[in-house]
């Protein structure tokens, strides 16, 4: 059984819209569902899911776009955010090629791992942040991201990356 991945540029409008929508949601609605002042990073979830669906290269591009979006919106740590998201989405895409395809468990676990990777890279590149609080935030946010993965992944798979067998 073989399948051909759609190229990223073919789905660029969908991915771009997903990232923008994710950023808009993250800066508005998701504040209301924060757990202990920690809200999920929906933009990162989208980037990692794109990496899972479209492969590591496309994931890296999407991760870079996600990081730049968040960085520009935040006005700080543009490079750290960009690099961390790029690496996380690339790693997620690489891992995905070695795992059984699955619609819930593998994407959720990959997003959990990818989120932790993104945090590690981010904190390595932004060392002025104290480690204790970010560590707790990183863990809670990664778990939260994992919970949000199934709907995001399924939506992207349905409307963004339909595999042709």
């Amino acid at each position: 059984m073989s399948f051909q991945r759609p190229t990223l540029h073919a789905r660029l409008p969908v991915v771009g819209a997903a990232l923008v929508l994710a950023l808009a949601l993250q800066t508005t609605v998701l504040n209301a569902v924060a757990i202990g002042e920690v809200k999920p990073d929906l933009v990162l979830v989208v980037a990692i899911c794109v990496g899972l669906l479209a492969g590591p290269g496309a994931g890296a591009v999407c991760g870079a776009a996600a990081g730049l979006l968040e960085g520009y919106a935040q006005g700080l740590h543009l490079g750290s955010l960009g690099v961390s998201r790029t690496v996380a989405a690339f790693v997620a895409g690489t891992v995905e090629t070695h795992l059984m395809r699955d619609k819930v468990v593998v994407p959720a676990a990959t997003v959990l791992m990818g989120s932790l990777v993104a945090h590690v890279v981010y904190f390595v590149l932004a060392p002025e942040l104290p480690i204790a609080r970010p560590l707790r935030i990183a863990v809670v946010e990664s778990l939260y991201n994992m919970l949000l993965t199934p709907p995001v992944y399924l939506a992207l798979a349905r409307w963004g990356f339909i595999y042709r067998r």
Binding site: G57, V61, L68, L78, V83, F90
Partner: peptide
């Protein structure tokens, strides 16, 4: 290549 290009773009943008 895509990964490195993305990283390069990010670094330049930063």
């Amino acid at each position: 290549v895509l990964f490195l290009a993305a990283l390069l773009v990010v670094v330049l943008a930063a």
